[in-house]
Amino acid sequence: MKSFTVIQGIAAPMDRANVDTDMIIPKQFLKSIKRTGFGKNLFDELRYLDEGKPDQSCEGRPINTGFPLNFPRYKDASILLARENFGCGSSREHAPWALDDYGFRSVIAPSFADIFFNNCFKNGLLPIILSEEIVDRLFKEMYATEGYQLTVDLAAQTVTTPSGDSFGFEIDAFRKHCLLNGLDDIGLTLEHADKIRAYETRRRAEAPWLFDVVK
């Protein structure tokens, strides 16, 4: 996994609540057996005016010019500002894959759905929870200032605006450690292999019906 330390980038809006993972990446693109290439279909039904098909080039498709991500001012955005309950619905990890592939490194919202939130950390994408009031303020500043950039510092756990105002955010110590260092958790978990085996041995004796049945 790629590491996340400090990023500074253009912020773009996704100004509605309950953005679901079907909206982030519609189901027809889930047929891919790869982890990459989802960026061109991020928010497909909002970005384009026609129905997207898997394995299709998006060049020449009719663009929805009313959708903010298509505005020139948000080109090259790497931070997405969003509203409450972002990423609800399906567990598809294709949602963070699509955001990452498009170029986003962080999503800032007042709240996230649990599974999406969790999936982000596995992909070097940082979801940041800030209060509704602060998020609202960031939205207003972003709309008012073309080229509005935010700086996210994971080590310091801060989001800083162009005027220098800084907002702190919370993050689990373990997740922070993994993101800062780009660590893959399978390797970390396997450091506890003896404990897993010990647990298994005990359960095999206590509850043998859990083992060797489905095969």
Binding site: R35, N118, N119, I186, A193, I196
Partner: peptide
């Protein structure tokens, strides 16, 4: 769970 966790559970049972 997400796909990374599918891999994690397959690899570690946890």
């Amino acid at each position: 769970i997400g796909t990374s966790e599918v891999e994690h559970v397959m690899a570690t049972q946890c």
